[in-house]
């Protein structure tokens, strides 16, 4: 299981509480969350599933490398942070 946390700024727009989810990649973990909360997806990824341009995701302190497919692997117990980038917006 991994724990996914979201920037608090999202809570004003959409339910985005921290959650524990299974998954072997960032994509799998997020897809599990988005399945239960489809509205959340549109705030984090674009219509093709790519991470929005001015968003970042960190896995155990490392920024994800694959912003298109979100294929970065995650370990059991990983801490995933979905954050705003300090650019644009």
């Amino acid at each position: 299981m991994a724990t996914v946390h979201f920037t608090q700024n999202l809570r004003r727009h959409v339910a985005s509480e921290s959650s524990e989810v299974p998954g072997r990649t960032v994509r799998e973990a997020l897809d599990r969350l988005f399945a239960d909360n489809p509205k959340l997806a549109g705030y984090v990824v674009d219509e093709h599933g790519a991470l929005r341009h001015h968003m970042n995701i960190f896995v155990d302190g490392e920024m994800v490398r694959d912003r298109q497919q979100l294929s970065d692997p995650i370990d059991d117990g990983a801490e995933i942070y979905v954050m705003q980038a300090l650019s644009g917006g």
Partner: peptide
């Protein structure tokens, strides 16, 4: 346009 969070 939420910028970071996209167009709604």
């Amino acid at each position: 346009d939420h910028g970071h969070f996209g167009v709604k």
